[in-house]
């Protein structure tokens, strides 16, 4: 439980962080540390240097950005969960941020870190995917914006390059027409989701428009459940289609077969809740 030796650098600015990352090949960004430190301590990962971006206070904010809400990458889950702007304009994101880990995790962990880590069992990536959010990534060539659909590439693999950092996340402003639900099935309250379902739709006159369903822990990345979305849009129960195109892991919390069953139940329930909400 003592990490292998590593160097440690403190970034004074975003540019400085990028320069530090460029200095060494096997560097890692340290933000809240709640995903990275356990991996370091188990010696699962052995970077030669940690670039600590934790003091870049300029990346911790929640701002009104017109049609969207912008969230600085270093904003802690707790602050996302309690930000008045989000509670007003996108309570979906703040609700789910309040379900991440436990209070200690939520006071250290950051939204940018959670996204960049690329864990398919994490909560916020699926919500971002369901909301078609955007992610700003800064690198030596400047800042680029990546759609959430293009961001998650594999297990612990995202569009963030080795010499880049996430700077901002944007989620749309919701209206009273929007319904949403996040169901997180787990054995203990502090566990990662065995299966999680983020469901989101615009409701009008009893119809469901623009339905979006994203799945947690059902494959190498958070996944959109397209078949279920189509069923939901056409007024059907989206549950039975929820395992289409999924490739869930099997582990001590549940076999792949069980997850494929569970996701059907949870998608049905999430859609029901989002339709009511």
């Amino acid at each position: 439980m003592i990490p292998a030796p590593f160097d440690y650098e403190v970034a004074e600015s975003v540019d400085h962080a990028i320069a530090l990352l460029a200095d060494r090949e096997d560097s890692k960004v340290l933000a809240g540390g709640h995903s990275l430190l356990p991996l370091l301590r188990l010696r699962v990962t052995r970077p030669s240097v940690l670039v600590d971006v934790g003091r870049l206070d300029e990346l911790s904010y929640v701002r009104d950005a017109g049609t969207s809400i912008a969230i600085g990458a270093l904003t802690r889950h707790h602050d996302v969960a309690t930000a008045p702007l989000l509670q007003e304009h996108n309570p979906f994101v703040s609700y789910v941020a309040g379900l991440v880990g436990d209070p200690q995790v939520r006071h250290r962990g950051t939204i940018g870190g959670s996204l960049a880590h690329g864990d398919p069992a994490a909560d916020l990536p699926a919500v971002l995917l369901a909301l078609d959010g955007e992610i700003d990534i800064a690198g030596a060539a400047g800042v680029r914006t990546v759609a959430s659909a293009d961001f998650f590439l594999g297990v612990f693999e995202t569009a963030v390059g080795p010499q880049e950092i996430v700077t901002e996340v944007r989620v749309p402003k919701l209206t009273a027409e929007h319904g949403w639900s996040y169901l997180k099935f787990r054995r203990r309250s502090l566990d990662w989701a065995t299966v999680g379902v983020a469901a989101f739709a615009r409701r009008s006159n009893g119809d469901i428009g623009e339905p979006a369903i994203a799945l947690v822990s059902m494959g190498a990345t958070p996944l959109r459940a397209r078949a279920s979305e189509a069923a939901w849009a056409s007024g059907q129960d989206p549950g039975p289609f929820a395992d289409e195109g999924t490739d869930p892991p099997g582990d001590t919390n549940g076999s792949a077969e069980y997850r494929k069953h569970l996701v059907k139940v949870l998608v049905r329930r999430a859609a029901e809740e989002a339709s009511r909400h």
Binding site: R187, R188, S189
Partner: peptide, 16 residues
């Protein structure tokens, strides 16, 4: 041992 740490060996907490 598949349940080799507290992530996989499920010691419950008060919230359970």
């Amino acid at each position: 041992l598949l349940t080799s740490n507290m992530l996989t060996y499920l010691v419950p907490s008060a919230t359970e």
